[in-house]
């Protein structure tokens, strides 16, 4: 089995697919980083325009004022518990910025690494997974090598298992590639880090919406570790589904096309999730797992556990179908 997996990986290396992935990620990260850099320049210009140059040149003044304002708001005895929790977390963030000399209006490399994954988990990450995975099986058909592979004295399920393991290895490698490229390039562009900056998380779900009554803050590096872990999970599930389509269709183009259609359809369908409950069993709706940690959207009665379960269910069904189809497939055609 070990030899089989090694052999599969060697094939991928020969096909230069990983190089294509690295270049794609590097181009996208550079574009994104430039956009972010440009944006923060513009924000500074606007601050200078509105508040006078003293504020733009010395962000500490501005941050200190924000901090003071928040501290005073916290003194109001009429605040609700929820509001004062949020305020004290924001205060903690401002204090961190001041103590560690980090300008909050300029993105640091940690924030960038985080944002890049938050933005790409829905579309870009699944797309990269497809590029890596889509022809693992169908490529053997189009290259006519499937007959050579299946006539070896190795059972079919072993071959497919090797390919599945290969898929997981590639996805894991992909996470490392995305992390290193975005951390490296953004450090070059932005200079400042901010890996220890506090990030707000730990939301509760109260009657189907995210609540703040238990929010805490975690250092940004830990937060990034968590969201990359969730992204890995999503990528593996997308990988299983792509493998299934690849086995069934034997055609790389059709595989990518169908997966793209599902992703795009899912992002449109998720608008209806409140009125059409059946949508919540569709896997694409659950791809944005990060939102449970970041509190960006209101999950319509969804929980992280439910989303993980749905994704796992789709993944295992896809795995099952792949094996059934691959073992019984007629390769003479």
């Amino acid at each position: 089995m070990h030899k089989l997996v090694e052999n599969e990986i060697l094939k991928v290396i020969h096909k230069k697919r990983i190089v294509v992935i690295i270049i794609t990620v590097a181009i996208l990260v550079s574009l994104f980083a430039y956009g972010e850099y440009y944006r923060s320049q513009r924000v500074n210009e606007r601050i200078a325009e509105r508040l006078g140059t003293e504020y733009a040149e010395d962000w500490r003044l501005f941050t200190e004022q924000q901090l003071l304002d928040h501290e005073r708001r916290l003194e109001n005895p009429y605040l609700t518990e929820e509001r004062s929790r949020r305020l004290s977390l924001e205060i903690e963030q401002y204090q961190y910025y001041l103590e560690n000399d980090i300008n909050p209006s300029v993105t640091g490399s940690a924030t960038f690494t985080r944002m890049f994954m938050e933005q790409s988990i829905l579309l870009f990450l699944p797309l990269l997974v497809m590029i890596l995975v889509s022809d693992l099986v169908s490529g053997e058909f189009s290259g006519k090598t499937i007959k050579l592979l299946l006539t070896r004295p190795v059972s079919r399920w072993k071959i497919l298992t090797a390919k599945m393991l290969e898929m997981i290895i590639l996805v894991t490698l992909l996470m490392a590639i995305i992390f290193f490229i975005s951390a490296l390039l953004s450090t070059l562009v932005f200079g400042q880090g901010g890996w220890g900056a506090p990030v707000t998380t730990g939301f509760t779900i109260i009657e189907g919406r995210l609540g703040y009554d238990q929010v805490t803050s975690v250092p940004q590096w830990l937060y990034i570790t968590m969201i990359y872990a969730l992204a890995w999970y999503v990528a593996v599930i997308v990988g299983f589904l792509t493998m299934m389509l690849s086995v069934l269709s034997r055609n790389t183009g059709i595989t990518i096309g169908l997966m793209m259609a599902a992703l795009i359809a899912g992002s449109i369908l998720s608008f209806f999730i409140n009125d059409w409950p059946a949508i919540k069993y569709f896997f694409v709706v659950h791809l944005n797992l990060i939102s449970y940690l970041s509190g960006n959207i209101q999950p319509a009665g969804l929980t992280l556990g439910f989303s993980l379960m749905i994704l796992a269910a789709w993944g295992s069904v896809a795995l099952f179908i792949s094996y059934m189809a691959f073992i019984r497939q007629d390769v003479l055609a």
Partner: peptide
């Protein structure tokens, strides 16, 4: 850190 059901409403 996963969101849990709100303990106290």
């Amino acid at each position: 850190y996963a969101p849990r059901e709100g303990a106290s409403q």
